Amino acid sequence: MKTQEELTEIVRDHFSDMGEIATLYVQVYESSLESLVGGVIFEDGRHYTFVYENEDLVYE
């Protein structure tokens, strides 16, 4: 089982391919040991929310 830090790094690596990240945040109250819920804001102003669970990243 991966730690929350490892899950965060996986998500950061994925989004870094889309541009320069200004902020990546995790909603700790919605996340667990198996899933990571949060959002990412890019330097150009784009903002996505995401759920990473079971090695699957869903964002909008």
Rank of each mutant, 00 (worst) to 15 (best):
M1E: 11
M1H: 11
M1T: 14
M1D: 09
M1L: 11
K2V: 07
K2E: 04
T3R: 07
T3M: 04
T3E: 05
T3Y: 04
Q4V: 10
Q4Y: 12
Q4T: 05
Q4E: 06
E5M: 06
E5L: 09
E5P: 04
E5Y: 10
E5W: 12
E6F: 12
E6W: 07
E6T: 08
E6P: 02
E6A: 07
L7R: 03
L7A: 04
L7T: 03
L7V: 07
T8C: 06
T8H: 06
T8M: 13
T8E: 15
E9H: 14
E9T: 14
E9W: 15
E9S: 13
I10A: 12
I10D: 06
I10E: 08
I10Q: 06
I10G: 04
V11D: 01
V11W: 02
V11F: 03
V11A: 05
V11R: 00
V11L: 07
V11M: 05
V11Q: 00
V11C: 04
R12G: 04
R12Y: 08
D13E: 11
D13F: 12
D13W: 13
D13N: 07
D13K: 14
D13S: 14
D13Q: 11
H14F: 15
H14T: 10
F15L: 09
F15H: 00
F15Y: 03
F15P: 00
F15M: 11
S16D: 08
S16R: 14
S16T: 10
S16N: 12
S16C: 06
D17M: 15
D17I: 08
D17A: 14
D17W: 13
M18K: 10
M18T: 03
M18D: 04
M18G: 03
G19C: 03
G19H: 02
E20T: 11
E20I: 14
I21M: 04
I21V: 09
I21W: 02
I21C: 03
I21A: 02
I21N: 03
I21H: 02
I21T: 02
A22S: 10
A22C: 06
A22Y: 08
A22K: 15
A22D: 09
T23V: 09
T23S: 12
T23Y: 09
T23H: 08
L24H: 02
L24E: 01
L24F: 14
Y25G: 02
Y25D: 04
Y25K: 03
Y25Q: 04
Y25S: 04
Y25L: 03
V26H: 03
V26K: 02
V26E: 02
V26N: 03
V26L: 06
V26Y: 04
V26P: 02
Q27K: 15
Q27G: 13
V28N: 13
V28G: 13
V28L: 14
V28M: 15
V28Q: 14
V28C: 07
Y29F: 13
Y29T: 08
Y29G: 07
Y29M: 06
E30P: 05
E30I: 11
E30T: 14
E30H: 12
E30S: 13
E30G: 10
E30L: 08
S31G: 11
S31L: 11
S31F: 13
S31C: 09
S31M: 08
S32I: 10
S32D: 10
S32C: 07
S32T: 12
S32R: 06
S32L: 11
S32P: 10
L33S: 12
L33K: 14
L33G: 11
E34G: 11
E34T: 10
E34I: 07
E34R: 08
E34K: 10
S35L: 06
S35H: 11
L36I: 11
L36F: 13
L36P: 02
L36W: 05
L36E: 00
L36H: 01
L36Y: 04
L36T: 03
L36C: 04
V37S: 13
V37T: 12
V37E: 08
V37A: 07
V37M: 15
G38H: 01
G38V: 03
G38Q: 01
G38W: 02
G38P: 00
G39H: 06
V40S: 00
V40C: 05
V40T: 03
V40W: 00
I41C: 06
I41L: 05
I41E: 05
F42D: 00
F42Y: 11
F42M: 11
F42A: 01
E43V: 14
E43R: 14
E43P: 04
D44G: 03
D44F: 01
D44W: 02
D44S: 05
D44P: 01
D44I: 01
D44Q: 01
G45Q: 05
G45L: 04
G45E: 04
G45D: 04
G45Y: 03
R46I: 06
R46E: 05
R46N: 06
R46V: 06
R46P: 03
R46L: 05
H47E: 15
H47S: 11
H47Y: 12
H47L: 05
H47M: 12
H47P: 00
Y48F: 12
Y48R: 00
Y48I: 12
Y48Q: 02
Y48V: 06
T49V: 09
T49N: 07
T49P: 03
T49I: 06
T49E: 04
T49H: 10
T49Q: 06
F50R: 00
F50M: 01
F50E: 00
F50C: 01
F50S: 00
F50T: 00
V51Q: 09
V51G: 03
V51A: 09
V51C: 06
V51E: 06
Y52C: 04
Y52M: 07
Y52S: 02
Y52G: 00
Y52I: 06
Y52L: 09
Y52V: 05
Y52K: 02
E53F: 15
E53L: 15
N54W: 08
N54C: 05
N54D: 12
N54K: 09
N54H: 12
N54L: 07
N54A: 08
N54V: 05
E55M: 11
E55Y: 10
E55D: 12
E55K: 09
D56N: 13
D56Q: 14
D56E: 09
D56H: 13
L57T: 04
L57Q: 01
L57E: 01
L57N: 02
V58Y: 07
V58A: 15
V58T: 14
V58R: 15
V58K: 14
Y59N: 02
Y59M: 15
Y59K: 05
Y59V: 15
E60S: 15
E60T: 11
E60M: 15
E60H: 15
E60I: 15
E60V: 14
